[in-house]
């Protein structure tokens, strides 16, 4: 929680905290070790690692938020429809989800990004698509459980519309597992997007994205370890932050599995 608060604060106030512009290169000062002017040293073309790391936190949080929001929205919609209406719709949607689930997520994401072209936006889209089935399943399971509850049956008996029931009764009841999963999903999304960037399928040359920074400096680990350690630790701690938060939320919101 604390880690995350720090990250969010940092990403909001980036312009005040940085010492250099993230794309300001001075090739004569490349691979300089940490010093008073460059707190975390410089990278392979002489850009300031510390400033790029800070700008990168914005990108990573954005990746996490957008990707998760995308898969939560679409996944929930699918899950709701499938769970609530059942029958053919359920069959069709869930079969589709099964097909997506039949492929390892990294592989699927690679293929999707290759089709759409390598860019950060497309990496986000790919990660989003990959995680849709998870949310669809959670929502569907929750809807199935809620649907048979007495007050839902009652609401339907009084003639409430489907949408009304979905919005006022079903959704609020499914929120808890969804929030937990989404928080944990932020971590996975950030990791996956970084992995794509690492394979050269994400951020564009020069963008201060952590996965890309790792890719670009991997080979320099022996000469300039700070260029590799810094973004690696940054990814690690941000993902750890989301996972800790997710765990805590699960304990609070989901009493059934409190023992975890």
């Amino acid at each position: 929680m604390i880690i995350l608060t720090v990250f969010v604060l940092i990403s909001v106030s980036v312009p005040f905290l940085v010492t250099h512009q993230p794309d300001e290169a001075d090739i004569s000062k490349r691979l300089a070790p940490p010093s008073r002017t460059h707190w975390l040293g410089t990278d392979r073309v002489g850009k300031d690692v510390y400033s790029r790391l800070l700008y990168g936190s914005r990108i990573s949080i954005k990746i996490g938020l957008v990707a998760v929001a995308g898969s939560v929205l679409i996944g929930s919609l699918f899950g709701l429809l499938a769970g609530y209406y059942g029958g053919q719709i359920d069959n069709l949607l869930m079969r589709g989800m099964d097909i997506l689930l039949a492929l390892p997520s990294v592989l699927l994401a690679i293929v999707i990004v290759t089709i759409l072209g390598a860019s950060l936006t497309n990496a986000i889209v790919a990660v989003s698509i990959v995680y849709i089935p998870q949310y669809a399943r959670i929502l569907r399971a929750a809807v199935l459980k809620v649907k048979e509850l007495e007050y839902v049956l009652a609401a339907r008996a009084v003639g409430a519309s489907d949408w009304h029931i979905l919005l006022t009764v079903v959704i609020p009841n499914c929120l808890a597992p969804l929030i937990v999963q989404a928080t944990l999903g932020m971590g996975s999304a950030i990791l996956d997007a970084a992995g794509l960037s690492f394979l050269g399928l994400g951020a564009k040359v020069g963008q201060p994205e952590w996965g890309l920074m790792l890719r670009d400096h991997f080979t320099l680990i022996r000469q300039a370890p700070w260029t590799v350690l810094a973004p690696g630790l940054a990814i690690f701690s941000m993902v750890l932050g989301f996972n800790l938060l997710g765990d805590a939320l699960r304990d609070i919101l989901d009493p059934q599995v409190k023992t975890t």
Partner: peptide, 28 residues
């Protein structure tokens, strides 16, 4: 190539030329 592009990008910026670095995979 990507590292070279970053360096050239920075030099061109000095004289007022903005560049967007594009680097699709090899076939494309």
């Amino acid at each position: 190539g990507r590292m070279l592009a970053e360096a050239i990008q920075s030099d061109l910026k000095q004289v007022g030329i903005q560049t967007e670095v594009v680097s699709p995979e090899w076939g494309t």
